[in-house]
């Protein structure tokens, strides 16, 4: 494994940033400060972080409606993310996309997505670009267990394998497609078994274990980068928050919530890193304070930013009518 102490610290900071960002968004949403609705990633931090640790800015990712964590792990500016969630003109999409559509193509982030399963075909496209132009760029397609049942995901996996594209499909199996449990909506025992159908490697890992995810991603992304084709990684985890904020989560029992808390990906990472003396308590405390300040600054930035001018309704669209 290629994990240096420096990378460990970076990974910890990323996970913490995601967690605090989401907790802050939940708080702001509850206070009525954010328009629309938000889908939070807290609980799944190890996945985006463990995978994106192997990507550079030149690599691409496609995301989901639960996209904040992917954005942060891929290096999208936190201020621009928070401003976007508020709908301010300084947002990553000038306030025109919102939480469900945060994107930053310059950072290789091809957008959170409001359509379940839409990322698979898009990922094939950016991977086709890399293959056609002969670059070593890799595309990672994050998708949920719900999206695994969309025809688009099956088609995308087949296409990626037919064309031997540099795509890594990362399924974030958090157990529920909205309120519908995975055991009901999926007829198979493992989503990773679908690799067999398309003749690509498929593995299932613990979605709360940063180290397991990091290792699986290293192998799959390496394979894609070497031109050896697509892979599928299924990460089994959970989300702490509802499908969207306001969801009472009646489908999750208190026992299950308690079990999840005991598997917290960040706490587990901290514990193992400290046991192996890869991170010190001091480093952790310093990082926590630094990240908290970054999030506070992002809120301030968003709140002080201007609203978009109403003329923006008519920009960035190629036909004006009437």
């Amino acid at each position: 494994m290629s994990l240096t102490k420096e990378k460990m610290l970076e990974a910890y900071a990323t996970m913490k940033k995601i967690r605090l960002f989401e907790e802050k968004v939940a708080e702001l949403f509850a206070e009525g400060k954010l328009p629309g609705f938000v889908h939070l990633y807290a609980g799944e931090e190890a996945i985006a972080t463990g995978v994106c640790a192997h990507l550079s800015e030149r690599d691409y990712i496609t995301s989901t409606h639960r996209g904040h964590g992917h954005c942060i792990a891929k290096g999208v500016d936190i201020n621009s993310m928070m401003a976007e969630v508020y709908g301010k003109v300084t947002g990553a999409c000038k306030g025109k996309g919102g939480s469900m559509h945060i994107a930053d193509v310059d950072k290789g982030m091809l957008g959170a997505n409001g359509i379940v399963g839409a990322g698979g075909p898009l990922a094939c496209g950016s991977a086709l670009m890399a293959k056609t132009l002969g670059t070593d760029q890799v595309t990672v397609c994050f998708f949920g267990d719900g999206a695994a049942e969309q025809g688009t995901m099956h088609e995308a996996m087949n296409l990626a394998c037919c064309w031997s594209l540099p795509v890594v499909f990362v399924c974030e199996n958090n157990g529920y497609a909205e309120s519908t449990p995975w055991g009901y909506h999926c007829a198979a025992k493992n989503i990773s078994d679908r690799g067999v159908a398309y003749d690509m490697p498929g593995v299932t890992v613990d979605g709360t274990d940063f180290f397991a995810i990091y290792e699986a991603a290293e192998e799959a992304i390496g394979r894609a980068r070497r031109g050896e084709g697509a892979s599928l990684i299924e990460c089994r985890g959970f989300r702490y928050y509802g499908h969207f904020e306001g969801d009472a989560m009646l489908y999750v029992t208190e026992e299950e919530k308690k079990r999840n808390r005991a598997r917290d990906p960040i706490e587990n990472f901290k514990k193992r890193a400290q046991e192996r003396e890869l991170l010190s308590a001091k480093q952790i405390a310093e990082t926590d304070a630094k990240v908290a300040a970054i999030i506070e600054e992002a809120v301030k930035y968003a709140e002080e930013s201007a609203w978009p001018d109403s003329k923006e309704v008519f920009t960035d669209v190629y036909v004006n009518y009437p």
Partner: peptide, 11 residues
């Protein structure tokens, strides 16, 4: 208008 729906409330 002949545009997609924007997110920001004023828009």
């Amino acid at each position: 208008p002949h545009t997609p729906v924007p997110f920001s409330p004023g828009l």
